[in-house]
């Protein structure tokens, strides 16, 4: 099962850092998401070296990942097509979880 089926999220940027939220649609899926969507697994998605910090918001059934070094050169100097990394959250939502 892909994380996309049970969670949604949004991606923002500041400088070379991307922040990606992962939010459970339903309370029943929150324990699975909290257990499996770790900082290590999010870091492994990136081709480059990144430092990932995970913040947990249990009341909202949400995780917030801060990915330092995700955006090469920062938004203003980047040669990437999606300089803001707005689509990166959907790379996280591709993650496979045990069904």
């Amino acid at each position: 099962m892909k994380l996309h089926e049970i969670a949604h999220g949004r991606t923002g940027d500041k400088g070379t850092t991307s922040n990606i939220s992962v939010i459970a649609y339903h309370a029943k899926d929150w324990p699975l998401i909290e257990a499996h969507v770790t900082a290590e697994r999010v870091a492994a998605i990136f081709d480059r070296h990144v430092t990932v910090t995970r913040y947990v918001l249990p009341k909202l059934h949400a995780l917030n990942f801060v990915v330092e070094g995700a955006l090469e050169g920062g938004v203003t100097r980047s040669v990437a097509l999606d300089a803001h990394g707005k689509s990166l959250g959907f790379a996280v939502l591709e993650m496979e979880l045990p069904a």
Partner: peptide, 16 residues
């Protein structure tokens, strides 16, 4: 709830 939660965490680092 879902639209508000997405926006709450948008471009936030440490929520605290």
């Amino acid at each position: 709830l879902a639209t508000c939660t997405e926006q709450l965490l948008y471009e936030i680092h440490d929520p605290a």
